[in-house]
Each structure stands twice: as structure tokens, then as C-alpha cells.
Amino acid sequence: MDHFRVGIDGGGTRCRAAVAGAEGRILGRGISGAANILTDPETALVHIRLATEAAFQEAGLPVSGLSSATAVLGLAGNNVADAVSFIAARLPFAKAEIVSDVLIALQGALGDRDGAVASLGTGTVYSIRQQGTVSMLGGHGFKVGDLGSGARLGQGLLQEALLAHDGIRPASPLTETVLAEFGHAPAAIIAFAHTAHPADYGRYAPSVFSAAAVGDPVAVDLVRTAARHIDQTLDAIVARDVRTLCLVGGLAPLYRPWLTERPGIEILDPTADALTGAVALAVQRFASDPSPAQMEAAQ
């Protein structure tokens, strides 16, 4: 059996997996649900396995190959040691390394070149590579960070809907739509918020941008505030003498018109996506691992 490399991109909304040969050519891809190991580690494990099995199936490979594969997993929530230990002990792979989802986005977007990547999705986090050294800004999680994220936008929208319901702030078509979804019952919004994960809030982000595009005042205010948070971080990155920026993630193209222009700063389109970056790292990190065939020949 060949010695496969697996890349995992596990975020707050979905988990994607790719299986490749030892040289890095992707053979199959799979997708499943959210894989934030901090907010819901048990579900993350299920979705990691489901996405990987789907990748093996698309490649026409037996799923039993998971047990001999080596993997790099870029996972949201990887900055909490207990969560990483819990996941690492239960993964189905022969060898695996858990890294930040930011690192795989950086590798996918820039390859091995220097620059900074802003990952704008359900969460927000920023990575910088300078002369081979990688550092990160943000990414502290929904409860105390992730400013400008899809989760924060969704949370802000529900807050504005409640304020409009109580007559504290003006209503708008968007707040009316949200209130109608919950039957104009604040108790229903409160119950939702009591159990909601970042991805549950994040699903409202596209509607906020759509409403802002047609001038909904609540949506415009929410997006402008979020864009200001992102601009502040980008300013801090540029102040570190970074001259190449790349915006990635599901919200990146939606934010571009709302962000400040920065003359002299190169804004690149990503070379590849985070999943491709995870595969590339898996090939790099496990390049010296022999295949089962090589191991058998050496005996």
C-alpha cells in the first residue's frame, strides 16, 4: 500500500481534506462540517474522519489507508494545548501534526515567499512570514477576539435586531428579516445565543454584506465597524515593514471594497488555498518517512 499524505483544513464552518501521494499530487478531496477543536472537539473529530474518508473515496482508495497515512491538520482552536492533546490522541493516522489553520493558509497563499496573510472567515487571524520566521496576530477566539469575523458580524446583527425590537435603535429591513426569522420573539434569539457556536453566528455574515451593498443602515454600520478592526490590524502588519499582503477566506472578497487603500503595498491573490497548503506541509514535514514498500524492501 502506498504511503499517502493527508492535508486537513478544519475551520469553524467546515472541514476539508485532501489525500495526496508522497510527492504531493492531490488524488482526492472531501468535505464535512465544522471542525473547531476548541468549541466542539468531539464533533471536530467526527468531521475530520468524515472529510478524510470522503477524500479517499473520491480518489478511489480504500479508507483503510487512513491508518498508514501521515497528515498535517490546520485546525481552528489549535492554540489551546488541552484541545490539541485531546484531538492528537484520537486521530486515525499513522503520524500527524496539528498546526494552526493560519499556517496552512499562509503556505497555500504565499508558498515559501515572505509576506502576510489575513484569514477572514468565521474567525479572523493574521500570519506574517519574514525571512522564514512566522508570527501571528489575532486569532484569539470568538469570545475575546476574532474582530471583523463572520461570527462577530452575525452576533452583532442579532444584537441590533434586539435593540431595534426594544425601540432603542432604529430598525432596518435587515433587522426586520432577522426578527421575523425568530417569530419576533426576543426569547427565541436568547435561546439561540445560549447554545450557538461561532459558525451558527457566521451564517448571517453573507446577508449582512448583501444588505450593506444596497444601503441597509444597520448592515452598513456593522460592516464599516468590522472593516475598521481589520484595517487596524493591517496597519500594524504594514508597520512591521511588510509590503506584501494576501487576503484569504470566505469573507475576503466581500471585505475588499470596504478596506483602506494602501499605496505601495502589494496585494496578491492567493497562489493556492489553505487545503493545498496543508498538503504541501504534509509533504515537507514527512518527506523522510519511508513508504510501507520501502520499509519492506529494507527488511
Rank of each mutant, 00 (worst) to 15 (best):
H194A: 15
I265C: 11
D216M: 05
V125L: 03
A94I: 00
F286H: 00
Q294H: 04
A297W: 11
G150H: 05
L275D: 05
L27G: 11
G108P: 15
L61T: 09
R16S: 10
T13L: 06
V63S: 02
T122Q: 03
T124S: 12
L275G: 06
H184N: 14
V117L: 02
L137C: 09
D221A: 13
A272T: 14
P270M: 05
T233C: 06
G60A: 13
E97R: 14
S207R: 15
V242A: 02
P263F: 12
P92K: 01
L137W: 12
E176S: 13
H3D: 14
A96W: 04
F286K: 00
E160K: 13
E97D: 14
R228Y: 07
P263Y: 01
L245I: 07
C246S: 10
N78K: 04
A171D: 13
S100H: 01
A81W: 07
V178R: 04
R5C: 08
I189F: 07
A161F: 02
Q284G: 00
F86V: 07
L153N: 02
D101F: 01
P257N: 00
A226V: 04
G10P: 11
A272G: 10
I104L: 06
G150I: 07
R152M: 12
I8S: 01
Q232T: 14
A118F: 12
F56K: 11
S119D: 03
V63W: 03
G249A: 06
L268N: 04
G115M: 11
G215C: 01
A212P: 08
T70M: 08
V283M: 07
Q130Y: 06
A205N: 11
E296M: 15
R90M: 06
T195Q: 13
A278G: 15
F192P: 06
I104G: 03
F56Y: 13
A18C: 02
A297Y: 03
G148N: 07
G249D: 03
I8M: 03
A55E: 01
G77Y: 00
V102M: 11
G10D: 04
P206H: 02
Q130M: 12
A17P: 08
D101N: 05
I189E: 03
S210A: 15
S172Q: 03
I26E: 05
F192D: 08
I48Y: 02
R203L: 08
G33K: 00
I98F: 00
G215E: 01
A44M: 03
L91F: 07
V117P: 10
I237Q: 04
P253K: 05
C15T: 15
V72M: 05
H165E: 12
A20C: 14
E53Y: 04
L247G: 04
A272N: 15
D216S: 00
D82T: 14
L75A: 03
H229E: 15
T233Q: 13
L61A: 11
R25L: 12
A185S: 15
G121Y: 01
A69G: 11
S135Q: 13
Q107V: 15
D2H: 12
R152W: 14
P170A: 04
A219H: 05
L61K: 09
P186C: 09
L153R: 01
V6I: 14
V144N: 03
T177H: 12
D289W: 08
T195R: 15
D40W: 04
A109H: 08
I189A: 12
A280I: 01
E97T: 15
A236K: 13
A51F: 09
G11E: 02
S135W: 09
I8K: 05
L179T: 03
R256Y: 00
L158G: 00
S32K: 02
F182W: 13
V220S: 10
